[in-house]
Design a protein around this nucleic acid. Structure first.
Lengths: 122, 122
DNA sequence: CAGCATCCCGGCAGATACTG
DNA sequence: CAGTATCTGCCGGGATGCTG
C-alpha cells in the first residue's frame, strides 16, 4: 500500500479501486453469494433475499463490466444462464471476508454509536 | 432492517455493516488520512486533495455519527478543531489496508476489463 | 479557517408491467 | 424464468456564497 510515494491515501489512487467496485449496495452481497459456485439468477435471488430482479441484473452487469463476474449461457432446453466469479473476482474474496468479519464483530458497536448520536442533545 | 434467519452472506446481516459505512466515496479516504494522527479539517483537505469543504464536513459528520471518528474542539486562540479516529474506527484500519492493497495490485486488471467491455460491442 | 445554506446533477435502488 | 422498459424517490457529491 505504501508503494506509491507520499500519495497512497489520497483521492486519486488505485488503492481506491476496491471501494469504487464495492460501493454499490448489492455488489458485495452478490459477489459473496457467488463465492462457492456459479449460480443462476433465480437461485441468487432466493439465496440473497430482498433484491429485486431488476437490481440483481443491474448489479451483475456492473460486476461483469468490471471483470469480476462472468455470464455463461447454455443453449440447452430449457435455456440456462449462470453467473460465475472470474479469477479476478475470486481474488477479492479474502478482502470481502475481512470486512464481513469486521461487521460481525463490531456491527453492534456501530449501532450503539448511532443510537447514542441520535438520542443525545438534538 | 429486517432480520432474516440464515447464513452470513444474505442481504440483511451485520456482516454488511462495513460496506454501509464505507460505501460513500470519501469515507475510506478520510479514515485513511486520519490513520496516523488527529488532523484539522484544513490539513485533511490538503492531504487528501480533490475534496470540497462541504463534502469533507459531511463525511466527517457521518463518520462521527457512526462512532468511527471523534470531533475535538480546543478553546484556544485561535480556536482549533481536530478530528481523530475512535478506538472503534481504529479497528477498521486493517480492513482498509487489505482493500487498498487489493486495489494497488488488481486495479490495472479492472481498468483493462472495463476497456475491454467498452470497446467490444461498440 | 470552520461550517452552514442553496441549488443542481447524476446514479442507485425500488416498484410495476411487459416481452421472449 | 431471464431480461427489459418506465417511472419515481432518494442521497451523495460538486459549485458557490455567506457567517462567525
Amino acid at each position: 500500500m505504501d508503494e506509491i510515494p507520499g500519495q497512497t491515501y489520497l483521492a486519486d489512487c488505485r488503492a481506491r479501486a476496491a471501494f469504487d467496485l464495492l460501493g454499490n449496495t448489492w455488489s458485495p452481497v452478490v459477489l459473496w453469494a457467488l463465492r462457492d459456485a456459479p449460480r443462476r439468477p433465480g437461485a441468487l435471488r432466493t439465496r440473497i433475499g430482498g433484491i429485486s430482479a431488476k437490481v440483481l441484473t443491474e448489479t451483475l452487469r456492473r460486476l461483469e463490466h468490471n471483470g469480476l463476474v462472468e455470464r455463461c449461457s447454455y443453449p440447452e432446453s430449457p435455456p440456462r444462464v449462470e453467473y460465475a466469479l472470474t479469477p479476478l473476482g475470486r481474488t477479492l474474496l479474502p478482502a470481502l471476508e475481512t470486512l464481513g468479519v469486521w461487521g460481525s464483530r463490531h456491527g453492534d458497536a456501530v449501532l450503539a454509536a448511532q443510537d447514542r448520536a441520535e438520542e443525545s442533545p438534538r
